[in-house]
């Protein structure tokens, strides 16, 4: 039950504070928002650096960023859907589908890599389109629609592979998740993942906070009725959000397949981690509020926390407990601030 906020304009007004400052300054403010997540992130990173001084070496830090890339991409995709007022629970199973389908179709043949990657993006877009159409045209709540998609994708992948993934991924597919541009001065290697993250991330920030589509997304999530009356095609905008989420999941799946290899639980748990990350970044479930940079910072914070818990030698299962406690804390804090500001 999101507290209704009738006093704030629905068009993401919280992140467009007046017309002061330059254009870029305003973009910065809109994209970053005012989420306290950056302080938390900085705190966790400093703590890691104290426990492990190597962490600040560029190669080590970039390796960390590489590991965090899939979740950051997923969080970016999930934010589009959440700002529009919906959920996407199918991203984890889509990652698994991408990894397993790639391994089976490419079957260690490097020549097939690029056609199959094109096919995977087609599959991803189709999954997003179906999620969007079932939600907007058939009026199935997105929680159920994407839950159904999760069951269908998981079942279909296992059905197709007979229960165990077959085939394999050749070097020219795997390298995008594993290697990078070599011989860069000072930092030695720039992982391909990080380049993908930079490009996709910048694209997502601009799309969300600088385009008509982005504004329509905030409007559709904040107050669908008002958005509809002012000429926004709410179903279309929402459907596009699902396609964007699925596309980001496809990208994350391709990188993860390279990084972690083929397994049929490659994407397990990612849907809830992505939603957690977005919420840590201050987005409101129910729609209308959120910031792209903060959502990706939320994802980075989660990964940093996992790294920290590892360094502190805590048993692995406690990761879950910490993730659980921190998302409740973050949302409780955001709700508290919202009440005080009124």
């Amino acid at each position: 039950m999101a507290t209704p906020t009738p006093t704030t304009a629905p068009t993401g007004a919280r992140f467009e504070p007046g017309l002061t400052g330059s254009r870029w300054r305003r973009l910065g403010r809109a994209a970053v928002g005012s989420a306290p997540i950056f302080l938390v992130l900085a705190g966790v990173l400093v703590w890691i650096a104290i426990r492990n001084p190597n962490f600040t070496d560029p190669p080590v830090f970039l390796a960390f960023l590489k590991r965090a890339t899939p979740l950051m991409l997923l969080a970016a995709g999930q934010l589009f859907v959440i700002v529009a007022g919906e959920f996407d629970l199918s991203v984890g199973s889509l990652i698994t589908a991408v990894v397993v389908v790639a391994a089976r179709l490419i079957d260690d043949d490097p020549a097939r890599t690029w056609p199959v990657i094109a096919l995977l993006f087609g599959l991803g877009a189709l999954v997003g389109l179906v999620n969007g159409l079932v939600t907007t045209r058939l009026r199935v709540p997105s929680f159920i629609a994407t839950l159904g998609m999760l069951l269908v994708l998981e079942g279909a992948v296992l059905l197709w592979t007979g229960g165990a993934p077959r085939g394999g991924l050749p070097e020219n597919f795997r390298r995008y998740g594993r290697f990078g541009f070599e011989g860069v001065p000072v930092i030695e290697q720039v992982p391909y993942s990080v380049v993908v993250l930079a490009v996709a991330g910048a694209g997502a920030v601009l799309l969300m906070h600088r385009t008509t589509f982005g504004r329509q997304l905030f409007a559709a999530g904040g107050n669908p009725r008002a958005a509809h009356l002012s000429g926004v095609d709410v179903p279309l905008v929402r459907t596009v959000a699902f396609v964007l989420s699925a596309t980001m999941a496809t990208l994350a799946g391709i990188l993860l397949g390279g990084f972690a290899g083929v397994s049929q639980d490659a994407g397990e748990g990612y849907e809830f981690q992505a939603i957690s990350a977005v919420v840590l970044g201050g987005a409101a479930l129910g729609g209308g509020r959120g910031s792209m940079v903060a959502a990706m910072a939320g994802a980075l914070t989660l990964e940093a926390l996992f790294t920290l818990l590892n360094l502190l030698g805590l048993p692995k299962p406690l990761r879950d407990a910490v993730q659980g406690a921190i998302i409740i804390g973050a949302v409780a804090y955001a709700a508290y601030r919202l009440r005080r500001s009124r």
């Binding site: 039950m1 479930l285 299962p317 407990a321 409740i328 949302v331």
Partner: peptide, 27 residues
């Protein structure tokens, strides 16, 4: 009480308490 008192969305609340239980149980 987390949902009504702290005004945390039920999805996040129960996802969070579920994760806490899972972590503690598995540990």
């Amino acid at each position: 009480l987390i949902i009504t008192g702290l005004r945390v969305n039920p999805f996040i609340t129960t996802l969070g308490t579920g994760l806490i239980m899972r972590g503690v149980l598995n540990a």
